[in-house]
């Protein structure tokens, strides 16, 4: 599904965010991306949906080199991925409902379908009743869950979540992770960058660890022992 070959990213500032990463993620896998702050987890996720271009190396999505993608293909790529951003990226002038609906509007789903699917997604992240709130009227955790609802509502092939539980209490975090697991069971490939070592260790999924931008650990049913 996703393959990275010798991928490095050096930001314009000179920071080497990721270095020489080789990684293959098969369809239907559930992968935790772990590592200390600044290890390059977010950078890696951004490379996958082409927010950032790698400095060197090749990245394939479903067998196609995404670095060769042009305009439309880039959009097609992003439409197939449900992205949860570390910084939420909600539209401030839209309500919760509209923010989630937007993911479907953008890919041209009919209104009827939108009205049916958005409440389901909001219920799944525990935000029923908050439809008409604006993002700045929500707590950090609630905003984060709007972002998650937006990512899952379109039932994407791939969920790419950057610290989806960073602002959530342990109970809610667990519910969200269960939700991801369920979506994964339904066939989606799930990639989650996280610091939540307790959850990682409990769920026994594949764990890919980064340190200083390098891949230092890649284990099926792995655990996270590098400290939070």
């Amino acid at each position: 599904m996703i393959e990275l070959y010798n991928v490095s990213k050096v930001y314009e500032s000179g920071v080497k965010a990721v270095t020489d990463i080789n990684l293959r993620i098969a369809k239907g896998e559930f992968v935790f991306l772990v590592g200390p702050s600044g290890a390059g987890k977010s950078t890696l996720t951004k490379l996958i949906f082409r927010e950032q271009l790698p400095t060197t190396g090749q990245i394939f999505f479903r067998g196609r080199n995404i670095l060769r993608f042009k305009g439309r293909e880039v959009l097609q790529l992003r439409r197939q991925i449900g992205i949860v951003f570390q910084d939420f990226r909600l539209l401030p002038r839209k309500t919760v409902f509209e923010n989630v609906a937007f993911a479907l509007e953008v890919i041209g789903r009919p209104r009827k379908e939108i009205r049916r699917r958005v409440p389901v997604a909001l219920a799944q992240v525990g935000l029923s009743g908050k439809e008409d709130a604006f993002p700045d009227q929500l707590s950090g955790g609630e905003q984060q869950r709007v972002g998650i609802a937006r990512a899952i509502v379109k039932r994407p092939l791939v969920i790419l979540a950057d610290e989806p539980t960073g602002n959530l209490d342990p109970g809610t975090s667990r519910e969200i992770m269960d939700l991801f697991e369920q979506i994964n069971r339904d066939g989606a490939t799930v990639i989650i960058a996280t610091h939540a070592w307790d959850i990682v260790n409990r769920m026994r999924k594949r764990v890919v660890a980064l340190e200083n931008g390098r891949l230092v650990y890649d284990e099926e049913q792995g655990s996270y022992s590098h400290g939070a």
């Binding site: 949906f49 927010e51 305009g71 439309r72 959009l75 097609q76 790529l77 992003r78 439409r79 992205i83 951003f85 990226r89 909600l90 539209l91 401030p92 002038r93 937007f102 993911a103 953008v106 890919i107 937006r150």
Partner: peptide, 14 residues
């Protein structure tokens, strides 16, 4: 601008 960026990342067409 921010909204446009977000739209782009959600795959909105040109």
């Amino acid at each position: 601008q921010d909204e446009i960026g977000i739209m782009r990342y959600l795959g909105a067409s040109n």
